[in-house]
């Protein structure tokens, strides 16, 4: 019973949080671009989320006749499901998490992030539309290559904590947060994480200015809404992972663990939005070159140096 309450509690909070993030993002972007953002509906524009929800629910839910129906409908479900399920393994505080996964939580999350690429590919492929297809192709190449360093950059952390269990990883950071000894790993993981959830500046699968909306060009109504919320769940997920793996998760003085976790995650979310406000989108070949020629060697170097130091001591 307690477990069920936790599952639905975390699920509900997460989805509501992801919806609220649309408002947070627009307000923060406004702040950084010297304007207001939505501030009319409700106090400080907070009800904008509700208004958008109502609007999106009443739009026509159109499945294009030229599309592949099954894949088209399945795609948004996959991204939402895989990213939400990944949250099951994240320890929010010592006693709030859904399922510690018997010590393989990290692998599970990585696997789920990998699964979410299917939604992009299916969505782009099933839409039967040139823009979508180009978006999906980009998504495949981008995710496949960035997944490599997404995993590699975390191996340093795993080596130092001697475990794939997220709780033990957090516990191992009691003395020193891993961001200090694993700084390279942190940078690589953050970059790869942004690319894996195709957030700006690595949003090449969507790339409004070139591909209209990339893989979800054909989507409307709540299906589009699910893609949208899925993206925000992805942001929360990567922020939570960054906080857990490199910034000591719930550890911190004075304040209760839950608050520490939320603060750290929130800071990363805000940082991602800042990145969106500040950085332009790279060209596609730049993205690939950046990944394979810079991030991969960095991740390998980080791994080898960590391993060497651990062996020597």
């Amino acid at each position: 019973m307690m477990g069920l309450a936790k599952v639905f509690g975390i699920l509900l909070v997460l989805v509501i949080l992801a919806a609220l993030l649309t408002w947070v993002e627009r307000r923060l972007l406004g702040l950084w671009q010297d304007r207001y953002g939505p501030n009319r509906v409700g106090p400080a524009g907070l009800l904008q989320v509700v208004a958008d929800m109502i609007k999106i629910l009443f739009k026509e839910d159109w499945v294009p006749p030229f599309s592949d129906r099954l894949g088209f409908i399945l795609a948004p479900a996959i991204v939402m499901a895989s990213l939400l399920v990944a949250f099951a393994a994240i320890p929010i505080t010592p006693d709030i998490d859904i399922w510690p996964m018997n010590g393989i939580g990290l692998l599970f999350i990585l696997a789920m992030i990998s699964l979410s690429v299917y939604s992009t590919v299916l969505g782009g492929w099933a839409s039967n539309n040139k823009y979508s297809l180009v978006g999906a192709l980009r998504a495949v190449a981008q995710m496949l290559s960035y997944e490599v360093f997404l995993g590699l950059s975390l191996l340093g952390v795993v080596l130092q904590a001697q475990s794939f269990d997220l709780r033990q990883i957090v516990a191992a950071q009691a003395g020193l947060w891993f961001v200090v000894p694993q700084f390279l790993g942190f940078v690589v993981f953050m970059t790869a994480g942004i690319a894996a959830i195709h957030r700006l500046p690595f949003d090449l699968p969507e790339a409004e200015s070139e591909l209209t909306a990339g893989f979800h060009t054909e989507y409307s109504s709540m299906k589009f809404g699910i893609f949208f919320i899925g993206e925000y769940v992805g942001i929360v997920l990567v922020s939570a992972m960054l906080a857990t793996l490199f910034f000591g998760g719930w550890l911190g003085p004075v304040l209760p663990p839950l608050l520490w976790f939320l603060t750290k995650t929130g800071a990363f979310i805000a940082f991602f939005i800042l990145l969106r406000a500040a950085l332009p989108r790279p060209r596609y070949d730049q993205l690939m070159a950046f990944g394979w020629k810079l991030l991969l060697p960095l991740a390998l170097l980080n791994l080898m140096v960590t391993a060497a130091i651990l062996l020597a001591t």
Partner: peptide
Amino acid sequence: SLLRTIWLIFLHLFHRRVTVEY
């Protein structure tokens, strides 16, 4: 230059907004 951009944009937190609330 990337880091500098991010920092400069962050400083906009403390700038006045140009919007005229119509």
